[in-house]
Amino acid sequence: MIGVGKIKQYSNVLDKPLSKGKQEVSLSAFAFLFSELVQYNQTQVDNIAELERRLEDAGYAVGARVLELLCHRDKGNRRETRLLGILSFVHSTVWKVLFGKVADSLEKGTEHEDEYMISEKELLVNRFISIPKDMGTFNCGAFVAGIVRGVLDSAGFPAVVTAHFVPMEGQQRPRTTILIKFAEEVLRREARLG
């Protein structure tokens, strides 16, 4: 039979590497599911801030699980303990698993020491979404912000994470920036570690 002998035999199931999982998911299926998620949450809320919070909470659960899975699969049950380490983990590893690419950029806020930004020219969840004018600055990227918060929080870096549209020159569509504001204790700990 073709392929026999190529598969390494493991005596113990625990020695077997964790499968990479299916790398590709239908974008349409995801877009419809996400659209339904937003629509459902819209029926449950009175205002936009509440909707944003609910989307973020939905993302939080994803983030917590993603961290668990990736630490086990890619890092041999270790997780990042330093600020920049965890940020680049989110920016590259998490982004790659969730969206198939690394995020467009990771920057440090210029005004505040505790702020970091992950920017994405076209966030996958926003690909097909047009925000009505009466919803103001609402951004469905709140879901992704929730994921980021979930990852950071579970890794011991409590932070406030929000998603914003940032207009770009010469581009019709604004880019989405995920703003991460770390809690004071995180920065204090970071300073102590040197």
């Binding site: 349409s28 877009a31 419809f32 996400f34 659209s35 937003v38 097909f128 979404i129 047009s130």
Partner: peptide, 9 residues
């Protein structure tokens, strides 16, 4: 189908 039907709003 992309930009209208997949738009939650």
């Amino acid at each position: 189908t992309d930009y209208v039907l997949k738009n939650p709003f």
